[in-house]
Write a protein that binds this DNA or RNA. Sequence first.
DNA 1: GTCTATAAGATGATAGAC
DNA 2: GTCTATCATCTTATAGAC
Lengths: 178, 178
Amino acid sequence: MEAWKLAEESGIAGLSFREVARAVGMQAPSLYTYFDSKDALFDAMFAEGYVQLGEAVADWVAEAEGQEPIEAIGSVVAKWIRFCQASLARYQIMFTRALPSWQPSEEAYAVSVREYERMTVSLADIGIVGQDNLDLYTALASGLAAQQMANDPIGDRWVQLSIPAARMLIDDINRRNQ
Amino acid sequence: MEAWKLAEESGIAGLSFREVARAVGMQAPSLYTYFDSKDALFDAMFAEGYVQLGEAVADWVAEAEGQEPIEAIGSVVAKWIRFCQASLARYQIMFTRALPSWQPSEEAYAVSVREYERMTVSLADIGIVGQDNLDLYTALASGLAAQQMANDPIGDRWVQLSIPAARMLIDDINRRNQ
DNA sequence: GTCTATAAGATGATAGAC
DNA sequence: GTCTATCATCTTATAGAC
């Protein structure tokens, strides 16, 4: 999908249907054969982003196999932040409300829900269960990513805090479970 | 500033200079008397957002006077998330890279730095010092806000986790300081 | 300071030929 | 399926009258 590259410069909200057509060697009307509207294009990008995330997470989880919970979570979060950094546009459409007037279709949304549910299974394996704990986990991870993207988009200032953050969370959960 | 209202519907990236002029009872060319360009308007909005935040934070800190660190931080974070929820456009321009091709001017940026430094002083008062601890704090707070804005923009699902999150952070810092 | 008029161009989307 | 041509509208920004 060429659209990702084009959306990097001015953000997902600045993406032009015409430009996407041009980038794939078409005129704009021809692209309407593949996408009914610009919103349908956003929809495809949203779903594709979650498919990419699903494949990546499978690898990350496999690589973390056998590690202690803190290292496992910390390393997966660090890789997830890198995944966000790899594409601002993808990050914006998947995880923020950069396009308030756009909503994913039911089908596209279902893809993201499936990915969330897979995440909850992985987290349950290492003892993170319950909605509040899951919400605290997503807040911590997305906060590291948000700060990294906003204040150090090509560096690793918050990436480096992934392990300390994971330790903080795991210790907190263990303490409350005593 | 009428511009905020207009930017809510389609996000800060969808804000139109023309529309802003209209909303304040002017034609677009007249508004150029006050702002040299659209970027200059963004600049003024960015700076105004930080002025509003500064005033609000002063109140929040006063209200938290005498509370224990956990309650003090938790209540300020909860109020900060509400501040973000009050305006998506303000949240986007102040805390995200929703406009990748726009950068605040040096003067506007200085306003945000001053606000950050005031925050570090308040946090130092309750024992949160050192860049890593500050970065962990901003990650935690901005993560709660990011999840709230993206997944429950008018609710309080992550707002309610402000105190538990503050407890997690303070306990973690205390443990490391032992 | 504010206006009308306009430049110069982009946008999403459609009609209809081939 | 892809194209040219076009619609209708939007955009930022400027020139110049009052």
